[in-house]
Design a protein around this nucleic acid. Sequence first.
DNA 1: CTGAAAGCGCTTACAG
DNA 2: CTGAAAGCGCTTACAG
Lengths: 333, 333
Amino acid sequence: MNDIARLAGVSKKTVSRVLNNSPFVREETRVKVNELMQEMGYTPDPQARGLAFRRSFLIGMVFDNPNAQMVVTMQEGVLAGLKGSGFELVVHACDRNAPDFLPEVSAFVERQKLFGVILLPPISENNALVEMLQERGCHYVRMASAVIDEPGNLVASTDSLATAEAAKHLAKLGHTRIGFIAGPPGFRSRAERRLGFLAGLKEHGIDLPARYSIDGAYTYESGIAAAEKLLKLNPRPTAIFASNDEMAAGVYHAARQLGLSIPADLSVVGFDDTPVSRRLWPPLTTVRWPIHDMGRAAAQHLLNAASDQPADDDNAVFPAFLVERDSTASAPK
Amino acid sequence: MNDIARLAGVSKKTVSRVLNNSPFVREETRVKVNELMQEMGYTPDPQARGLAFRRSFLIGMVFDNPNAQMVVTMQEGVLAGLKGSGFELVVHACDRNAPDFLPEVSAFVERQKLFGVILLPPISENNALVEMLQERGCHYVRMASAVIDEPGNLVASTDSLATAEAAKHLAKLGHTRIGFIAGPPGFRSRAERRLGFLAGLKEHGIDLPARYSIDGAYTYESGIAAAEKLLKLNPRPTAIFASNDEMAAGVYHAARQLGLSIPADLSVVGFDDTPVSRRLWPPLTTVRWPIHDMGRAAAQHLLNAASDQPADDDNAVFPAFLVERDSTASAPK
DNA sequence: CTGAAAGCGCTTACAG
DNA sequence: CTGAAAGCGCTTACAG
């Protein structure tokens, strides 16, 4: 920086002003300094800037999510959004049920003086965490399945609309006895997906009796267990909606054990459109949500905050939608 | 830090010495300072330390790997190993085929003054990258499928031994016409898995004719394409080894299209033991390697370097091994 | 619009 | 075994 200042014939301070887009620099000076920085391949030291600013140029991604594909795709989306910004992404896996969960994350944020954090579900739904971040003056973006915060602090998919679509898809195929495998309590997406599905059924005058609705845990094994219960019912459901793909894979397993053919005997719908949905046989009808784009949007929210730009309200909600493949067909007569 | 120094009645410098485990501190002073730090909940500012040290307390994870589950599990392993060390993990996805791949990673390392980086395959096999890191004085650990560096810079699985085991497993089941789907050129694991498999077959006097060996790309689609070619051969192979699980899933797809039953008509073996291997039907016989432990070991290598401890030679090679499930059975008569 | 001084929180020589 | 001075590379007041 000293070199740049010397060569440009200005003070260190002026170089700093150019770096920080201060309006108090003559256009001529700005251009000259910028050119010199380009030439010399100069990039400011983020640690030194951070020390002076009393905050770092790091973004944290805090997660405790079982869906690996989701986590990686989200990371890649965020990294794409952060590219060239000078901010870097620090990952922080944690255990939301640990007794020191909150103080642990708090210590992380404070020690690294994070500029902001991106919260993945279900941690993103933890209000105590968000309050802690606000107190620390740490920016944040919550990834969620519904609108649970202001647009500037949120990137959400429309889970309930998508599951309503799924319900209507099944109803149109003539299914009336439909099984539902819910997500686990503690995930907002459990409620969103459930409520949307019920609403979609209702439009077609279809009811979901309590015994046709079983709680799962978003795991393969829980999908098997839930499907076994549902397929034991009399009369048996002709279709099952599983609140994620992993559980839908469990439904496939249970159906196969019982000699049921998909989709002839049983239609199945999942949620997430993870790679497994295309590895299953037949390929799974499921709900897709734009994880990569949402990660990029989260990064953009944070960069807006960093440059004091207003929140981009149009970049907060992303539609999820049904992808029809071969696991759904007309209800058996 | 000033507070601590004042309360302890020593200079800032002495506190610093305690922090850095300098031997030149009286035991009594050390204990007193440590107690005070504990009491006050003091943690040194990594940015300030970094600025003075001319390097940061950040570890980079550089990757361009298609296996999301692997990436996340590796991250979690590294984070577990780094926990409490004061080091944080910065993720850096990149495109190994981009023209500015090397300068881009180089700029990242230099700008952040990374203490070290962890390289995931296939990037870990790039020698030009490693030379660049050495020149920069940046510590590194290569994750690999074979011993390609000194133990202190390496965490490797024993891919070739594991595929030899897989080959012998198939041979013992009576298979003699075996198809092989290789990984793509540019991955060291391609050669390791191939050579090990050939060696295993050889032990049983079995040959792999060229037309029974097809190149894949570690993707589902490439697995389908390769399997279609193999299953068209006359005589048809009674078993197929796919160099990863994704391609094995492709083999399932192709077999099903042809009305072949697994394992009655065709035995299948994969590699990676990703979740998909248990979602397939029947569950896939595959090779497991201890990704989480390997991530933790990589972190440990870097922490050893940070505390000037000698490399832990016994913590560099991790055995991969066959997990027998239901996709392999005796060769059809 | 621009600059000289002081400081962010730590560490490295250099003395003692 | 311990301390006073100078510095890491930047920014924030404060002047002009």
